[in-house]
Amino acid sequence: MDKRRIWEGIRPYVLIAPAMAGILLFVMYPVGYLIYLSLFKYNLMNKDKSKFVGLDNFTQILGRGDFYKALWNTSVYTAGVVILTMLLSLLIAVWLNKKGRFNSVVQAGIFTPHVVSIVSISLVWLWLMEPNQGLLNYLLKLVGLPPSAWLQSSKTALISVIIVSVWQAIGYYTLIIVAALQSISPSIYEAAALDNASKFKVFYKITLPMISPQLFFILIIMTIGSFKVFDTVQVMTGGGPNNATTTLVYYIYGFRTTNIGYSAATGVVLMAIIGLLTFIYFRLLSKKVHYQ
């Protein structure tokens, strides 16, 4: 009888143990180790020569101009990608939501970039954006506009990377928004029509609130994803020209062999920034999000 009571008590823990083991091993341990590393001046050649430096790495980060440059670039990149992608996906989704003959084709087509590897996409765009032989400048010239240096000027490099990321992300998020739009009961729109609501009002007072959970989800997922951007930068610009496209993760990557401790500390800061941003989002917006 007593044995059975003990078993009753520990059974829940036994049942979640496999999942917890995975989380501990693959999530908690790496995060913990990252924080641990950030407190050291780490020697990759000889572990024993690593020196505990306390919060030295962090004071160094906050005192260095190149970190702020990377943080600024990342913020601009994130703002650009999130705002552009959300606006464009919303527009396209509203358009696709009408039942047209070509809409399923367009929907499939617009989703395709998501299936292709971001490295391939970056390479293709690298070629399209080539200032002398690239297709984009050719088209610009064709319609009589001045050509752009695209990735090769520090003025336009970041916006060029943003364009590629937006182009790649739109299809996926459009799909999510289309699904959200289609789940709205048509009779609500009919009721709104009988209530003499203008098109703008219907969109603003009915459609947007109805899809707000999905929009909020997209906002958070994309902010987190954009803050961690790496592959497009690595393939297309390597952080250049003149650090114009160095983002936080690329910055971290830059110290991977020279200063692991500093690298880890930047990683911890990035984690903190993302956590803080998500927290702010929830505090500011969660009241405006309508869950059914």
């Binding site: 009919e190 009721a191 009915i206 109805m210 309508h290």
Partner: peptide, 15 residues
């Protein structure tokens, strides 16, 4: 000048 009551009520859930 007509008003309608729908089978599923069609109430605006967000309001």
């Amino acid at each position: 000048g007509v008003a309608m009551v729908f089978q599923n009520y069609a109430i605006y859930p967000t309001m």
